[in-house]
Design a protein around this nucleic acid. Structure first.
Lengths: 355, 355
DNA sequence: TTGAAAGCGCTAACAT
DNA sequence: ATGTTAGCGCTTTCAA
């Protein structure tokens, strides 16, 4: 017995509500299941007569049928949605990640859902729970503040998930080789140049969070190279002021006041921190920072072109996303760390996307 | 008569599949509709006894119940999803827009879905159709190449939609006051400075697309100010090379070859074009561009701090999204243009988000 | 080669 | 103050 009596007597079709497979079924003389099979590409699999299939497809086109993916998802227990958590959209690293993810997800026929949580742990948890409620099929987590909390939420929901950039101990994690990157960056930052002597005085490490995985590894690399060069990297040369531009400005300003000037070599941990540094510079006379050298972990095409040498370490967004998707495809969710090499961008060498 | 017989006999609950309101109903002795009401905040509305409500909530928490938003959406004919179309994530204007939208949508209890289409008309249409299939409740469209095609698709689906940045003639559109912005930007670009004389020679307009709304308005403003200052802006000073960085590089390079040098004043239409310009500069000796002045429509914090004066016109992303949401709230979808003033960022004045 | 019917998890009449 | 029931639009056995 038919359950539905909507959409009139079968002729109202035109302008009313949107047609469903039931409408198509009625008007094509086929059954809903046949229509369904045809419209979800299972025509051959179900051995639908080509003629019927064609007829149904034609009718669907004529009536402007569009499938309801909520209904399909509900029934199939597979939504086609895939999530990505990032800290913020306004950061070239994360937006590169978003772009890679967006393109790749769509290429596979998934629908990407990107959510920013502004480094707020409660917001992170809330957002992940929302995505789970929408029945996303998988989640990539980049820039999480409280990775373990999120891992737990995902695990409880049996949601396949992969961490990117900032790893979790209990799940597969694709991360940049921060230590290696930091070593190379520091080496370039401190290497021979007219002002090398003064640069070597007191290289400074600015930005990041003490416990944070990326910060720890990068600081490791920084310290190692300093030591190699016979330089101390004492505690007052390491200023972990988080990732907020304003805090970075204030922190660096305070340091300058104490030192009576800017440091000559500066390792900047992430782009937002770099923004904070520039805000301070904006308030200074031009001469104050002409002989400064900067290394920044993360790449921004404009930052690569300032009036003083800026060396950047560009994380491989495409590589990170590709590795993460490979984990998903393989279906092996044993915890492990997968490292992706970043790439050094020399001062004034504007990186070309097309390469 | 009960339809469902899954989840065992009512005790299996713990580790099996995720609990539904039916499970909660059985285990709390209440009916599914009561549980539903409680769990979607309609407890008082339905005059549920506080005790029952509390009990159900406790049980839900205990069992780790999470609502299935696909099912809810299907039933309510309201998904809670809201879409935003952008051209690319890797552009500070669009990522600011994304951030504004993300924050605001979430604040209202909506789930934002941001999709980039890389200025590809077919991709635009495809993506919009997908979002419609997911039953999004509304769509904001920014950076569309073929606005009218998208408008038509949305209209056919009766989907509330608002254009941002690039308007449609047939739908409400919130746009930056491009003309005004371009006038101000040009005026600042050309105003008195040591090198004013040479700058005034041949100001150049670079980037954008001939038919494109933003380009037309900005070019208008540019031309108007040039005329005011008694300057010609002949056709060979207007190079509409699209928005691709590589094309911008090539175009400017060709011009330089013809001119035997760089123009001294450059109006750059959008950040990707600016990226292209910098790629060319990267190949030149330092001296080649020390006396150049640049005005760029769109803001990037790092671009604001190059070694030559860069004036930027910052579009008000928050304002654009706020106006767009107001249109949605008002429910008035008559076609109209709503202008939002952009803001001039003086050279070396790094804009502070917190202001 | 196709149809009938159940049901995904939820909400909203309409009952009491 | 709460229970019963139909049904949102789709897919998927199972039957024929």
């Amino acid at each position: 017995m038919a359950r539905r009596n909507r959409s009139g007597d079968g002729l109202a079709g035109g302008a009313g509500r949107k047609p469903t497979i039931y409408d198509l079924a009625r008007r094509s003389g086929a059954s809903p299941s046949t229509v369904s099979a045809v419209l979800s590409g299972k025509a051959t699999e179900r051995r639908i007569k080509p003629a019927t299939a064609l007829a149904i497809e034609a009718l669907a086109a004529e009536l402007g049928y569009v499938p309801n993916l909520q209904a399909r998802g509900l029934r199939r227990e597979r939504s086609g949605l895939v999530g990505l958590i990032i800290a913020t959209h306004e950061d070239r690293f994360f937006s590169s990640l978003s772009q890679s993810f967006d393109t790749r997800a769509r290429r596979r026929g998934h629908c990407p859902v990107i959510a920013s949580t502004l480094r707020n742990p409660e917001e992170e948890a809330r957002v992940v729970r929302t995505l789970i409620s929408y029945k996303i099929d998988a989640l990539f987590i980049a820039g999480a503040t409280d990775a373990e909390a999120l891992r737990e939420i995902c695990a409880a929901a049996r949601l396949p998930h992969v961490f990117i950039d900032l790893p979790s101990l209990g799940a597969p994690s694709v991360v940049t080789d921060n230590r290696l990157g930091a070593e190379r960056l520091t080496r370039t930052l401190l290497r021979g140049a007219p002002v090398a002597a003064s640069r070597l005085e007191r290289p400074l490490f600015l930005g990041g969070v003490a416990g944070d995985f990326a910060t720890v590894s990068r600081l490791d690399g920084f310290r190692k190279v300093c030591a190699e060069m016979g330089l101390a990297a004492s505690d007052d040369q390491v200023l972990l002021c988080g990732y907020d531009p304003r805090r970075a400005t204030a922190t660096l300003e305070a340091l300058c006041a104490r030192l009576g000037g800017l440091p000559k070599a500066l390792f900047i941990n992430s782009l937002p921190v770099f923004e904070g540094v520039l805000r301070l510079f904006a308030a200074l006379p031009d001469g104050a920072f002409t002989d400064i050298a900067i290394g920044c972990f993360d790449y921004d095409p404009f930052a690569a072109f300032l009036s003083f040498p800026v060396t950047m370490m560009r994380q491989d967004a495409d590589g990170l996303v590709d590795r993460a998707y490979e984990v998903l495809d393989a279906g092996d969710f044993t915890p492990r760390l997968i490292a992706v090499e970043p790439r050094l961008i020399e001062p004034r060498t504007l990186y070309d996307h097309a390469s």
